[in-house]
């Protein structure tokens, strides 16, 4: 559907959305590749992976899952709010979502910090000199949660840009593709975490 604006400018929201989805497919394949590595090594070193999983705090993992799920809800609700012309509510919901992103990253900081303190980081003596399976488990842990963390950061940047657009009136109830696409990206970050959580924190 092509909407006509007063200025005569033509916008194609469906095209914009398809473009975003194409990008999301590439992200899915990127993380899919990492999960293939996980599956193959899990098969080979299942005992070490279980031992590695014990090192991770499943309550912190669960807390981060809850934080991301709630933020996904508030982002989805902010789109509803913008389209219902409730700008103030939309802005509050976006600010809250950004706060959730910050909480997630702060949690991650403490989590990684605790691992570092116990000499569990790439290239540490415990990992290099110990079981190869444990080294691979933590290698994958840092790569996947690190890459996911970068995605959280990018998602927060996109949400901030959308927030500025909503505040400045550039994103409106009729023209919300920027917020919509940032929301899709944020949900993708959530999707990846939904798989990361059981694979790393709940392996038995």
């Amino acid at each position: 559907m092509i909407a006509h604006k007063e200025s005569g400018e033509r916008i194609d929201p469906t095209g914009i959305k398809i473009g975003m989805w194409l990008f999301l497919y590439s992200e899915i394949i990127l993380f899919g590749g990492l999960f293939v590595l996980y599956a193959a090594y899990f098969h080979r070193y299942s005992e070490s992976f279980a031992a590695g999983g014990e090192e991770l705090d499943r309550l912190i993992g669960a807390a981060n899952t809850v934080v991301l799920l709630i933020s996904s809800f508030t982002v989805a609700a902010s789109i509803t709010a913008l389209r219902l012309h409730q700008r103030r509510r939309c802005i509050c919901l976006l600010l809250f979502s950004l706060l959730c992103g910050v909480i997630f990253l702060v949690n991650k900081y403490f989590e990684w910090g605790a691992k570092f303190a116990r000499d569990l980081y790439p290239g540490s003596e415990t990992l290099v000199g110990g079981e190869p399976g444990l080294n691979i488990f933590f290698g994958l842990y840092y790569i996947i949660t690190g890459l996911h963390g970068i995605h959280v950061l990018i998602g927060m940047v996109l949400l901030t840009v959308s927030l500025v657009w909503v505040v400045s009136g550039r994103a409106t109830a009729e023209r919300y593709s920027m917020l919509d696409n940032s929301g899709l990206y944020w949900h993708l970050v959530d999707l990846i975490w939904i798989f990361v959580f059981p694979l790393f924190y709940l392996v038995l």
């Binding site: 996904s72 982002v75 989805a76 899709l184 999707l191 939904i194 798989f195």
Partner: peptide, 10 residues
């Protein structure tokens, strides 16, 4: 969980 996020949130 992923299906719920995809179907409704996305």
């Amino acid at each position: 969980k992923v299906s719920l996020v995809l179907l409704f949130f996305m």
